[in-house]
């Protein structure tokens, strides 16, 4: 017991059946129509905030360290050791940051969509919090993708920006992220925000195949995909390895950021619930005294 509680963040931990916290937590989301299910069944096993905090807390150092090490290795490899391209010269090194950021922008949106389904269909309380925290991180990576793409496009294409289908659809993805960030926080009742945000996120999923296939469906200035599932990557292997490293590292960094933010969000929700419960107790005491 002591080992377990000292391992949990902040030195507190939540027993699976801590009914007191559960009832308090329900105060913060009065509109939630489905009462919390018994723990230990399917997806809702991870709805228990105490269990989530323990699991995420244990996972966090691995995600963070792995992400930092792989990203650093990949970036140094790409910046210093990878060969320059025969026609693009050293500007091709921007690929090692641009492409992983682009992948993460789409993958992050997919994660947002999965959370939104969990939220809308299964009313999963952690999915709501995770969706709210994925949004800003995904927007940041989309912003990196757009900015580094611009920095790559100017010296190679000769333009910072063009309105071709690939660039425009990624810009739409960026705005979808921004809209989600704003919408999910726009309501006084957080549950309504979660619903609205989830619906926006799911409608936006239609943009993901458009981004992916824009370079095949329409003629664009952006080149088509180098790496496909079916054929050999049309890239020299000495360039592919650093790209794979940064892509994996960036994925772990993304996961680490979302995990850390979601842990904080779970704790913040509990703080709000505790404060409301304390306020309610005080009110009750005043009424009894009167």
């Amino acid at each position: 017991m002591t080992a377990e509680s000292s391992a949990s963040p902040g030195g507190f931990e939540m027993a699976p059946g801590a009914a007191m916290f559960r009832s308090v937590d329900a105060l913060s989301s009065l509109a939630a129509p489905v009462p919390p299910k018994a723990p230990g069944r399917g997806l809702h096993r991870f709805a228990n905030p105490g269990r989530f905090l323990r699991l995420a807390g244990a996972l966090q150092p691995w995600l963070t360290a792995g992400g930092l090490i792989l990203t650093a290795a990949g970036l140094v490899w790409g910046l210093v050791f990878a060969p320059a391209d025969w026609q693009q010269g050293d500007a091709v090194r921007i690929m090692y940051v641009h492409v992983p950021a682009a992948w993460l922008a789409s993958a992050g949106y997919l994660a947002l969509a999965v959370c939104s389904v969990l939220s809308l269909v299964w009313r999963h309380p952690l999915a709501d919090l995770a969706a709210a925290e994925i949004g800003p991180v995904g927007a940041a990576f989309t912003g990196i993708c757009l900015a580094t793409g611009s920095l790559w496009g100017k010296p190679m294409w000769g333009a910072w920006w063009v309105w071709d289908a690939r660039l425009t659809s990624v810009l739409v993805l960026f705005f979808l992220y921004l809209g989600h960030i704003a919408l999910i926080r726009a309501f006084d009742d957080p549950t309504r925000g979660y619903r609205a945000g989830a619906i926006l996120a799911l409608v936006g999923v239609v943009n993901l195949p458009i981004i992916k296939f824009s370079v095949d469906w329409w003629n664009t200035l952006h080149q088509p995909a180098t790496i496909s599932l079916t054929g050999a990557p049309s890239m020299y292997l000495g360039m592919l390895w650093p790209l794979a490293l940064t892509a994996l590292g960036y994925t772990l960094v993304f996961a680490a950021l979302v995990t850390a933010r979601t842990r904080a969000a779970v704790m913040e929700r509990r703080i709000r619930a505790l404060l409301m419960a304390a306020a309610a107790r005080e009110d009750g005491a005043v009424q009894v005294a009167a």
Binding site: W86, M156, G158, Q223
Partner: peptide, 17 residues
């Protein structure tokens, strides 16, 4: 205005040579 559209292949100079 003329923009260059590079393709999706990446290779070092010596491989191209």
């Amino acid at each position: 205005e003329v923009l260059a559209k590079h393709d999706e292949t990446y290779m070092p100079k010596d491989v191209a040579e």
